[in-house]
Design a protein around this nucleic acid. Sequence first.
DNA 1: CCAAACCTACCAACCAGTAGGGAGGCTGTC
DNA 2: GACAGCCTCCCTACTGGTTGGTAGGTTTGG
Lengths: 192, 192
Amino acid sequence: MNTQSTRADDILRCARSLIVRGGYNSFSYADISKVVGIRTASIHHHFPGKSDLVRVLVAQYREEALAGLDRLEQSIPDPLDQLRAYLGYWEGCFADMAAPFCVCALLAGEIPVLPEEVAVEVRAHFRQLADWLTGVLERGAAQGRLRLSGTARADAEMFMATTHGAMLSARAYGDATAFGAITRPLLERIAA
Amino acid sequence: MNTQSTRADDILRCARSLIVRGGYNSFSYADISKVVGIRTASIHHHFPGKSDLVRVLVAQYREEALAGLDRLEQSIPDPLDQLRAYLGYWEGCFADMAAPFCVCALLAGEIPVLPEEVAVEVRAHFRQLADWLTGVLERGAAQGRLRLSGTARADAEMFMATTHGAMLSARAYGDATAFGAITRPLLERIAA
DNA sequence: CCAAACCTACCAACCAGTAGGGAGGCTGTC
DNA sequence: GACAGCCTCCCTACTGGTTGGTAGGTTTGG
């Protein structure tokens, strides 16, 4: 583990909080410069180009997400509770106003104008999350804890889509509680 | 009906096709200029500022959507078929590669960086669509054609969220058929 | 003649990115 | 232990291109 070079991490953290507000084209090196306290030219030293910065940012986000899901899976035995915890995590993000949006869900909408290398990472996140959800649903169904309406894969894709759509609705309504209001029935419906 | 001034309409149509690709900050007056064949300065004559242009664009989109939903409601008697037709419309958009995304769904993600006047229109679209869906679900439930799992409003919000999320997934996967694959089970589940 | 529509010619601000240099730390060699 | 060389990090200064927007004049059609 390298705990050094907080600078690159500062830049990444700052860029993430900026990108979460409005996507790839909504922030500039100057914005990062102001917050982190570094010149724009120095950012290029850490990340040659903007596409590199965002690619690393998304890759790191993906790693964190995977680690979080794994941790969640190991600390919570019941599949239904796992889904509950997953949605609860996001509900907490909206409540805190911390980072009330999935980086990849936001970037997915902008894919046609995204650098290919970034789009690849976004795509990978969608697959990764859908895979995880599919696994949870399969196990839940096998244990008789969850009642699927189609294949585990199909239900997982729908679960993910509803979650992402609920984020959009929460933003559109300007109501942080909307996310929970939309996703909670999702759990009730799927519970056996 | 004013059929005059195709120029302002040209600009709006062009801006819409551009905004659908990557949102508010992904296009410029120069982009419109190249396509429409007009100087950037002339665009300001029709729309004083970019926020005006996009506000009118979204307002017009909203009108068209409302008209489309009304037309759909009058030509198709069965509520389930109405939902099917609504999803079918978007499935067609993805297949044609015409405008494979809801303008407002895309802009909703960017709300924190959107001019307030635009955000208001986006919010209004979400309410409008949710209202329409709520009406359809209510009627479907009353006729015994649809089986709701919560209130009509709650189911409508979830239906809308899933639809928007399916658009994101289709983009992320780079697979136009994904939208249909995700939303089709939505209908089967709700059918009585 | 008037007004809408469109033009050329600007503008200041901003964009990502480059060139080149200086400060400080680490390492190898005598 | 001293010194040279190098590497990382960050700086100032600058570039060419783009951004949304303005001023003011010209064309065009009723």
